[in-house]
């Protein structure tokens, strides 16, 4: 399979997937409620790919990903409200603002804390998540638009599915290209053995900061979209529990598998919603079981597949030909 053929195939796949989803929306099989959930799953894909770069590919344990999603959501929301008289341009601009702000904060916080390793790094990022959360709670002191603990309302909404789908596809293509570029190899090298990577001339500090910043940019983009998908942006949507959701998506999907991250992001979002719907159909007393079932599913899946559902696998159309010839080491072991 040569490169052009591979690209054409991938493109056809995307168009078919889009046509299928669009048909389901037009015919009303996917109603307005499920459409918002579909948008949300795209947001999880984008944010999840961000954490996938940071943790899945580069191995930098982050328990604070939701903080960057939140920073993106708040900055984008603020921008979209303040410049709302520019119409659609304000919304488009807000996506860029969300990315830049989260990326910038990610860079500034990444430079000092990426010196920490494994669990210690996780705890530092977790702490950062709490600090950002407290900041959001008090954000009304900075600008009344941000709303503080009350939450931010009035962000122009666009629930059109195309926005989310197209953004997610673009992000996916860019991430895929990044992962198979020389930078991507450097990420994996750092994950596998930092000292060895250093010895062959990959700067651990630079590579880690780069991966972290790129991941945070994607989190910010996800956050910006979040602000446009929900009429109400609240600090409680970006707690460390949300960071754990992202972590679950990356780990259950399989570390270092983009396919896994995408499928798990969509699957996990819908699983939780279906669970909610199914239990509320059974009766009001069953709805409380949701958390218990959620926990059980999590435990059972991770015990049955400790390496993640798609651990060490990558959809074959994603893997470049050269990478495949070298004993398929590209997809991350």
């Amino acid at each position: 399979m040569n490169k052009t053929k591979q690209m054409v195939l991938a493109l056809v796949g995307v168009v078919v997937l889009y046509a299928l989803l669009k048909a389901l929306i037009v015919t009303g099989i996917i109603g307005p409620y499920w459409q918002i959930i579909l948008n949300e799953s795209m947001i999880y894909v984008i944010g999840g790919l961000g954490l996938s770069i940071i943790y899945g590919f580069t191995g930098q344990f982050s328990l604070g990903h939701a903080a960057f999603v939140g920073i993106g959501a708040y900055c984008a929301g603020w921008f979209a409200i303040t410049f709302s008289h520019y119409g659609i341009w304000a919304s488009l601009g807000s996506l860029v603002v969300g990315m830049i702000s989260a990326g910038l904060v990610g860079y500034l916080i990444g430079v000092p804390i990426l010196r920490l390793k494994s669990d210690y790094l996780g705890i530092a990022t977790l702490g950062f998540n709490f600090i950002v959360y407290d900041g959001m709670q008090n954000s009304d002191k900075l600008s009344s638009v941000l709303g503080g603990a009350q939450g931010m309302t009035g962000v122009p909404q666009f629930q059109t599915f195309e926005w989310y789908f197209v953004t997610a596809v673009i992000v996916f293509i860019l991430v895929r290209n990044l992962v198979f570029s020389s930078h991507g190899r450097a990420f994996t090298a750092i994950r596998e053995n930092e000292t060895a990577a250093d010895v062959v001339g990959i700067s651990p500090a630079r590579t880690k900061i780069m991966a972290f910043t790129v991941g945070c940019v994607l989190a910010g983009l996800g956050g910006a979209l979040y602000a446009h998908n929900y009429p109400y942006v609240n600090p409680d949507s970006f707690t460390f529990l949300e960071s754990i959701n992202y972590l679950i998506i990356v780990v259950l999907g399989g570390m270092g598998s983009m396919t896994g991250t995408v499928i798990t992001a969509v699957g996990w979002t819908f699983l939780l919603e279906v669970l909610r719907m199914f239990l509320s159909l059974l009766g009001p007393s069953f709805i409380n079981l949701r958390g218990v079932l959620y926990a059980l599913i999590l435990i059972v899946v991770i015990i049955l597949r400790p390496q993640g559902i798609f651990g060490g696998m990558e959809a074959s159309f994603l893997v470049p030909r050269i990478g495949r010839r070298k004993s398929n080491a590209a997809a991350g072991s």
């Binding site: 780990v251 259950l252 958390g291 959620y294 926990a295 059980l296 999590l298 435990i299 991770i302 015990i303």
Partner: peptide, 14 residues
């Protein structure tokens, strides 16, 4: 760690 998080949620919700 993920299964520990699962166990934590299980105890809380149960």
């Amino acid at each position: 760690l993920i299964s520990a998080i699962g166990a934590s949620f299980f105890i809380e919700y149960f």
